[in-house]
Amino acid sequence: MASEPLQEQLSRPIPDFTDPPAAAPANGAPAYDLAPYRGLPLRQPARPPVPVLGPGAVELTGPVFGPADVGPLDSDLTRQHRGEPLGERITVSGRVLDRHGRPVRGQLVEVWQANAAGRYTHRADRHAAPLDPNFTGTGRCLTDGEGRYHFTTVRPGAYPWNHHRNAWRPPHLHFSLFGTAFAQRLVTQMYFPGDPLVPYDALWRAIGDPVARARVIAAYDPARNVPEWSLGYRWDIVLDGPAATPAEGGR
């Protein structure tokens, strides 16, 4: 699991995801809509959040999870049914860190994703792509003593959504993460490097800072391939929010 030092990873050049051309085609067809996702207006608070200052807040601590919550097979999404799911087998692994670069140890990581055809096991998903009886698309693991997580799964497919005409989501994994503090809670999505759909994606474009957009794209890491078995992707995650400093007894 040896890999390049953290600072070098994080200062990697940004993948070449430049803005797609926005000009309307000459034949009068509508230009592709590149407006970023803004969410549902009625669900957006109008007022700014109120800062909670000072120590001692309950939110600076957080829940703990253990072997009762997560079994050793929960991180392998290809072994939850009688047979193997269809698709390109991959592993996704990396580290969960706080803003100070300290590993988040023994904490819960959850993922969910569409199957290789771009369909979720969810009754609200009406995309006309097949379900895979051997794939649910959900997984859990606990980070190890270095903050590392690891999942085995299949590469998800793209799927259409109703953000605008002809909008497609790029293949992605949803991630749910906990830190040592509840205030560090994060839900986000991971994308694949070199994917031509990504620059068109309204949700990816909703990340306002172009530099920050690169941080949700995994790296292909041949060193993490399992020979004759699976392709390896690496994605490190840095949690925002106040974490206890070591002097305060952060675990």
Binding site: H174, I207, V238, D240
Partner: peptide, 20 residues
């Protein structure tokens, strides 16, 4: 050291098999 944080993204409509 202060690392750049990973941005948040919406939970979306399909978390139901994974989180509850």
């Amino acid at each position: 050291m202060s690392l750049p944080v990973t941005p948040s993204q919406t939970i979306g409509p399909f978390y139901g098999e994974a989180l509850p």
